[in-house]
Design a protein around this nucleic acid. Structure first.
Lengths: 207, 207, 207, 207
DNA sequence: AATGAATGAGCCTTCATTCAT
DNA sequence: GATGAATGAAGGCTCATTCAT
């Protein structure tokens, strides 16, 4: 009850920021949505930027953390990759997820601000680490870290493209056609197959 | 003389828009760079958005077109893919290229506006078509178009990630480490190997 | 405990008001300095202006009063004038005096507010009266009060100029040069000599 | 006609600034008075402060300059001093003078801003120089410059007190009584007599 | 008695746009 | 054809004040 307004503002801010970005979003709109006074932002956060950082922070703090103790590390590595992709694609593409949390994180990935550093530390970093570990099990043991990284980016890039270039994709192959691709299961299958083949080739080449 | 000003404005607009984006760029800055009057934009283009579209248009019109007659279609398909990747990565990553043309196109890919449609028609589309044709030669002939598209996105996604998520990448693995990856030759080699393995696997699976 | 906060606020207010003036000072800064809540000002004083008046009141209440019983009225009038000037200049110019009391009074003299009336009654008035009495002893006995007043203003004006137009003075004759004048002894000597000559002339003329 | 608005704004700004000071004056009020748009200030001057400086500049530029060639240097020095005082007091006290020019200059003398430096250079400085020259003719020739300065401040101080401490004066001796003193002729006579006696004493002492 | 939270009015500034020449 | 001048809407922010506890 006491800091209900503060909460409402962060929530509204996340909503608006995730849709319009930092510059385009206005404090007035945020406060309108939060049914709060414009001055409340200044009171609770100091300024617009701090509010933005706060929203980003909440976005990743309230996201399901990568709990390594819960990760099925005993699964075969290829299954782990499949699982990883499924989770990642679900997070990014699932239109059922109502909140603005992921949307804001994604926006921050495209337009990093001062909030990005912490986002990388607390959200992106751990996930990236996990992916690298999985890949390492699928790659030659003596492969230099840099090459593992290249593979990780290859995996990630194939997912991100659907999130960040959706409008271009819709124009490119037709709206319906593109939207039909937004099927987590199908994409998971395709990308994991595609990647596993690439990884296997790297293994063979190393022999 | 008469439309020299117009030209200067479009050029300055491309410069500024590509650096700051549509909203952040101001007409005053553009006109300052173009040594023109603030009112000139509205006089010549009507409004800011039209000027933006004009700049995007020029960006892709003056880009080297994908001249299919010049494309070495007689090369082996895997060589073509390698070549395609090299060109794409060079365009996107080469810091030597001074102009704003590519930068603006890339920005439009991330934040599509009304200008995007034409950009897809005149710039992205043809390149995407070319890629799909190359891939079709490397994939089972009876593969449905939708699956070819999936492969095309897999190829493109691996390239775009370096362009659009550079800041995150730098934070993720360290500035120097990440910049060291920005080597067109290395990336071309990695991505083409990775993709060719994936494509080969799709061929085998179809047997 | 109960009105300790109140005291702290008045003290902080005097500090801040004396440095920044009424408008420029903010309740937040005052309360920050007093380690009190922003609402405390309105709670204890009603509004900002009342607090200001309170600070001015304390400034002159806690100032050393002109205790006529202690004033060496038996001294020769010219010595009394010299003493008066020395006290006045010391109060106004002595940089050693740390408190905000005089500073606030001086500010109020330059920008009178509603607090001024009481300040005149309790602080300035008595001092002015004393000066007039001293001058009357040095002027023709039948001189009209209005002319005595003129002389009093002449005396005061010569002192105030150093307090209120210091910045201009520094620009006018150079910073170091001007600051060198800020020597109470020197100024006392000069002004008293100057004035005594003027007073003597008035006496002679009256003969 | 062309920059009529600009002129109107400076004029209105001078009016408002001279009455309310820099902080208290609002662009809105100034533009309201000038019948101009708020944005016009930004267009013509960049910001509020620059406008203020501009107003101060005009205030002293349009003031009657101290044209040394027109100054009656052949008059006896005591007559020159009388004349100087008359002019100074007229400028400062004459309620007939309609413009805001002097009022703004006076305000700047009490609360110097960045505009003060130029004001001293172009307005106050020359007048001060003139006064010093006059005084030098009335003081021992070998008197150190610093002591001449002291005398100059004594002269000026007696004038300024009527301008800057009028409210206190009114409270001190009664409104009507004080306003009755605002007679340029009477003040000129008193101050010049008072000063000439002081100067004469300094001469005699030097013998 | 005292305070953290919230408010509303207002300020300076910015910007794309329009107007008058 | 082209521009300097002017505009109105809006934005972020500040501040004294009030409210609810």
């Amino acid at each position: 009850m006491t800091d209900e307004t503060r909460e409402r503002i962060v929530d509204a801010a996340g909503e608006v920021f995730s849709q319009k970005g930092f510059q385009q979003a206005t404090i007035r709109e945020i406060c309108g949505l939060a049914e709060a006074n414009v001055a409340a932002v200044n009171y609770h956060f100091g300024d617009k930027e701090t509010l933005y950082v706060e929203a980003v922070k909440r976005a990743h703090c309230e996201s399901v953390p990568v709990d390594r103790s819960e990760w099925p590390s005993d699964l075969p590595a290829d299954e782990q990759l499949r699982l990883f992709l499924e989770k990642m694609l679900t997070d990014m593409l699932d239109r059922e997820t109502p909140g603005w949390h992921t949307a804001l994180i994604m926006r921050e990935m495209a337009h990093p601000t001062s909030a990005c550093e912490e986002l990388v530390r607390g959200y992106i970093g751990p996930r990236f680490e996990l992916l690298c570990e999985i890949l390492r099990a699928l790659l030659p043991q003596d492969m230099p870290g840099r090459d593992v990284t290249l593979h990780a980016f290859s995996v990630i890039g194939q997912c991100l493209v659907y999130r960040f270039h959706r409008p271009v994709g819709r124009l490119l192959i037709g709206e319906d056609e593109f939207e039909a691709l937004f099927d987590v299961e199908r994409l998971t299958r395709h990308i994991s197959n595609f990647c596993l083949a690439g990884l296997a080739a790297a293994r063979e080449e190393a022999l």
